[in-house]
Simulated scan of single mutants.
Amino acid sequence: MDSVIKDFRDLEVWKRYKVLRSEMWALCKSFPLEEKYRLSDQIIRASRSVTACIAEGYGRFHHQENIQFCRQSRGSLYELIDHVDVAFDSEYIDEKKKSELIDMIVLCIRILNGYIRHLKKQKELNKKSLPTK
């Protein structure tokens, strides 16, 4: 985190998720119409949840709350992996596209895990700096 973070949109993790969210939206546009309220809807909701949880967690006062929202975001990322598998199994995407999307999701998970580690360190630093009674 080299630059100044003014809000959640400055976080690298959120920026990566935004790209992923756009990629998922583009993917859904290629699905058959009968998937509009099934797989497409689930993918769009999960991908939006990924960025929304980061934003909501950032807005929380305590580090632990932020960490919990990050964990929810991570759950949505794993959900997206399953949805990509379903898209592949349904023959909506080929093996190459499946691999590209899963690689992108896994990278987002790694970046998120790093952000969670950072938040945990900040939480511990804050505990150490509190005056003792």
Rank of each mutant, 00 (worst) to 15 (best):
V4C: 11
I5C: 09
K6L: 09
F8K: 02
F8H: 08
L11F: 00
E12M: 06
E12P: 08
W14T: 08
W14I: 03
K15W: 00
R16I: 06
K18R: 09
R21K: 11
R21C: 12
S22K: 04
M24T: 02
C28A: 11
C28V: 04
L33E: 14
K36T: 14
Y37E: 03
I43A: 05
I44L: 11
R45G: 01
S49G: 14
T51G: 02
I54N: 12
E56C: 05
G57W: 09
G57V: 03
Y58L: 06
H62D: 06
H62L: 08
H63W: 05
E65A: 02
C70P: 07
Q72H: 10
S73F: 07
L77P: 04
Y78Q: 07
E79D: 08
H83T: 00
H83N: 05
V84R: 00
D85F: 13
A87S: 11
D89S: 14
E91M: 05
I93A: 06
D94Y: 10
S99F: 05
M104A: 15
I105D: 01
V106K: 09
I109P: 04
R110A: 14
I111K: 10
I111Y: 12
I111D: 15
L112Q: 15
G114R: 11
H118Y: 14
H118W: 12
Q122S: 11
L125N: 13
N126H: 08
N126T: 11
K127A: 15
S129V: 09
S129E: 15
L130H: 10
P131S: 15
K133F: 08
K133A: 12
K133T: 11
